[in-house]
Amino acid sequence: MKDTSMTKNIKISANNIDVYYGDKHAIKDVSVQIEDKTVTAFIGPSGCGKSTFLRCINRMNDTIDIARVTGHIAIDGEDIYDPRVDPVQLRAKVGMVFQKPNPFPKSIYDNVAYGPKIHGLSRNKAELDEIVEKSLRRGALWEEVKDRLHEPGTGLSGGQQQRLCIARAVATEPEVLLMDEPCSALDPIATAQVEELIDELRQSFSVVIVTHSMQQAARVSQKTAFFHLGNMVEYDETDKIFTNPEDPRTESYISGRIG
């Protein structure tokens, strides 16, 4: 046990997290250590709090008035709920791809360039062009849109929009990428491309992905967490979760009996 945690760095350490939406207790005392340069999958039935927990990690829950988060989350040992932390700075470091594709109603180019622009990641237009191209390539979208970069991003198909959002998220070079069901609107080819991207990102970042596809979780992730009714039931090596889960609830979910 000790050995494995020594070999891998802990990137995100969440301890005793509770989230309330008003009176509703959405996340119940969840603790999880997410490793660096690892893909971690969150699985679980709809409404169990996967997105809610994901949103704790980049403090997007701050924007929901009724949401209340307690507990500690540290990234690289720094408490992100410390009053000195500016959530804006945090979100530059922790990128997010949302469950529903939400491109800006601007051009494809501007969608991707927006993050680098506001964070001053490029010194001139040529550099910015380069970032945009690189990001779109990583989002497996470049070939499809390279001739119409200045058309509105909202004019793309649902799956293309989701890949645009992925490109937008990676354009700011985050250290952690949170992906909430990034492939739910994608066809198998684009899904394969995104999974390839996730694998590539793992070389340098830590990726947390929420997915409803067991196969995808098994394919891309090294660690898997199973959520059920706001609890984190089980968190372990992906292989172990899928072949030999400890908890009967995990087993029934994976074999399709609950959820």
């Binding site: 980049n58 997007m60 924007t63 804006v88 700075q89 979100r91 530059a92 470091k93 990128g95 997010m96 949302f98 529903k100 939400n102 491109p103 800006f104 109603p105 927006y114 993050g115 506001i118 964070h119 959002c165 937008r168 998220a169 354009a171 700011t172």
Partner: peptide, 11 residues
């Protein structure tokens, strides 16, 4: 979702 998108990239 537009506000989320902007905040999500660190605006």
């Amino acid at each position: 979702s537009i506000r989320d998108a902007a905040l999500g990239v660190g605006a």
